[in-house]
Amino acid sequence: MKKRILQRISDSAVWRSIFRTGIPDTDLKRSMLMFHNFFLHIFPVKMKRHGLQFSYTFCLGGISCLLFIVLTITGILLMFHYTPSIERAYFDMQALALIFNGKILRNLHRWAAHGMVVTVFLHMVRVFYTRSYRPPREFNWVIGIGLLILTLALSYTGYLLPWDQLAYWGITVGTTIMTYTPFIGNYVRFFLLGADEVGHEALLRFYVVHCVELPLIIGALMAVHFWRVRKDGGISGLL
């Protein structure tokens, strides 16, 4: 009975117009399901059995990607309630607690951001110890290092946005560290802050970099990273 209903649904013209494949009860249909779906086609149709082993990858790359998706969704929703100006930013943060689910939105964004820094770093550690950077995967490791740096940059630029004491002095201390760069230290700081001190210019700059520039760059690099995993022969083998 249940099977018949499922059969009827998956045979219907509407279902077929969306998913093309029916109930995936044969190997061919299972392959087609992966191959003909936009969201699933980034995965191979078949994968090595050991690639499914949790203790090999600890799902760290996948969790990093998932956290990035969570951050994108919550980040866009937070943008509806936020004004990047020093007169409003902090009070927008306070007002967020009054909005339905506003607090949990901010909590999700904050903890996912910290989580992503941790999982991206641990992902690098895992890849090192499984020696997965060996040829032909050398350049994907380099892209991964770039993604780690971008993750830190994303987290750091977001740190200023609440415009509280923690944010203000965190960025002040961080950008002071950058002034230790020989010869161009003060220029680096001025370039980042748009002024000599952390102020309105810095807030606007960090906001645009955090919400537009870095997500675009990291998104493109993530696409290359995943694409190369496939092109370099899928997940690396056991040592």
Binding site: P24, D27, R30, S31, L33, M34, L40, F43, P44, V45, K46, M47, K48, R49, H50, G51, L52
Partner: peptide
């Protein structure tokens, strides 16, 4: 080869 179908095993 020691492979499995991505769907359903991995999904």
């Amino acid at each position: 080869e020691d492979t499995v179908d991505t769907f359903p095993h991995y999904i």
